[in-house]
Design a protein around this nucleic acid. Structure first.
Lengths: 186, 186
DNA sequence: AGACCATACATCGATACCGAGGTATCACGG
DNA sequence: CCGTGATACCTCGGTATCGATGTATGGTCT
C-alpha cells in the first residue's frame, strides 16, 4: 500500500522525501501514520527496483534534498498495479482508498470501470462479521448493542458505496462506448 | 489486532486453534485473511505471556487438539485493552471493528461510553485525504470522479457512524446514571 | 546568545506477518 | 484400496513495519 501511494504521488510530479512524507500523512496519516523508519527504506527499495531515481539537489535546505523521479518502469509498475490490483487492494478499505486515489492515472474508462466492478462484486457478497456455522448472523440477532450497531452501520455504509459504484461504473462504461462523457443516471 | 481478537473470542468460551481460526476468518477473513503462519505463533506468544493455557485433549480428532483457555491474566489483559485502547484501535476501521466486537465484555456502561466517545471525537475532526498545504480539500474541488466519490462516500459513512455513536453514547450514559437501561433518543 | 522547532535524511533492532511447505488422522466416494 | 478433502497443528525464511535514536542546518522567538 505504501509502495502504491509513493508511486501514485510521484506520478503527478517529482517530490523529495519530506514532501512525500506530508502527502502520505494527509492520505493515511490520520488513520495509520507512516513513520520515517518505514518510508525511507521503502524509497530505497523502490530505487533498488529501478522504479524511481534520486537526484541530489545541493539546495538551500538543511539536509541535501533528494528529489525523487519516477522512471518509465515506475510509471509502468503503477499502471499495472492500478489495472490489476491484488485481492487485498479490493477488500481492505484502507488499501482501496489508496487505489481509488490514483485510479485517475489509469487513462482508460473501461479499465477503470473493471476495477470498480471488482469492488462492487466484493461488496455485494453476503457477509457478516459473525457466523453460526456457515450462516452469517444478521444485526437483528444480537442483543449486544455494539455488534448490532456495527452490522447496521456496515450495512448502511456498504449501501452508500454500492450506489456510488453503480452510478460511476455506468458513467464510465457509457464513456467507453460513446467516446464521450455521460451524466450518471443516478 | 489479532491478539485482541483471540482474547475476545476466548473470553466467551474455550476453543481449540481450528475453531478459533474459523471465528477469525468470519470476523476479518473477507477483508484480510489470517494465515496459519500468523495464528499459531500468535497463540504461542499469548501462551508465553501467560494470557492463555493450552490443554491437550487426547480426543478422537485427527491431530491432538489443544483447547485454549484464557487465564485470569488473559481476561484482565482483554479488559484493559478494551478500557484503554491504543490510538490505532480508534482510528483504523479494521481495528475498530475488532474492538467493537468485544466491547460488550467490558461490563461497565460508563467505560463503554468513554470508548465510543473517543471514536466520536476522532470522526468529528475535520479530515480529508488530500490537502492544499494544511487546508483539507473538499470533494467539490475535484474533477477526478474517484477522489470526489471517495470523499463523498467517506462523508456519508462517517455521518452514519456518528449518528449511531451519538445515540448509543446517550443510551449508555443514561444507563450509567440511572442504573437502568434507556431507549436511544434517536 | 540560546532555546526551540521545522526541515531533511538515515540506521537499527525487534517484531509481526505472510506464504509455502510439512506432518498426521479420519471419512467418504469410486 | 486409493485419492481427495476436511480436520488439526507446526516450522521456517523472508519481508515490511515500527519505534527509538542520531545527525545536520536554518529560521524564529525571546
Amino acid at each position: 500500500m505504501l509502495k502504491l501511494a509513493i508511486l501514485g504521488f510521484l506520478y503527478d510530479r517529482p517530490l523529495h522525501g519530506y514532501e512525500l512524507r506530508r502527502h502520505l500523512a494527509g492520505l493515511t496519516g490520520h488513520i495509520r501514520p507512516i513513520s520515517d523508519g518505514t518510508l525511507y527504506p521503502a524509497i530505497k527499495r523502490l530505487e533498488a527496483d529501478g522504479l524511481l531515481v534520486r537526484e541530489t539537489e545541493p539546495g538551500s535546505a538543511a539536509a541535501p534534498r533528494h528529489t525523487l523521479h519516477l522512471t518509465d518502469a515506475g510509471r509502468t509498475a503503477l499502471l499495472d498495479t492500478l489495472r490489476e490490483p491484488e485481492p487485498l487492494d479490493i477488500s481492505d478499505g484502507n488499501r482501496w482508498t489508496t487505489l481509488l486515489s490514483f485510479l485517475r492515472h489509469l487513462d482508460d474508462p473501461a479499465a477503470q470501470a473493471a476495477v470498480l466492478r471488482r469492488r462492487l462484486v466484493f461488496l455485494s457478497e453476503p457477509a457478516s462479521f459473525y457466523y453460526d456455522g456457515d450462516r452469517p448472523r444478521g444485526a437483528e440477532e444480537f442483543a449486544d448493542p455494539f455488534r448490532r450497531g456495527l452490522l447496521l452501520t456496515a450495512r448502511a455504509t456498504t449501501e452508500a458505496e454500492l450506489s456510488w459504484l453503480r452510478a460511476t461504473v455506468a458513467a464510465l462504461e457509457s464513456t467507453a462506448r460513446t467516446g464521450g462523457p455521460a451524466e450518471p443516471t443516478d
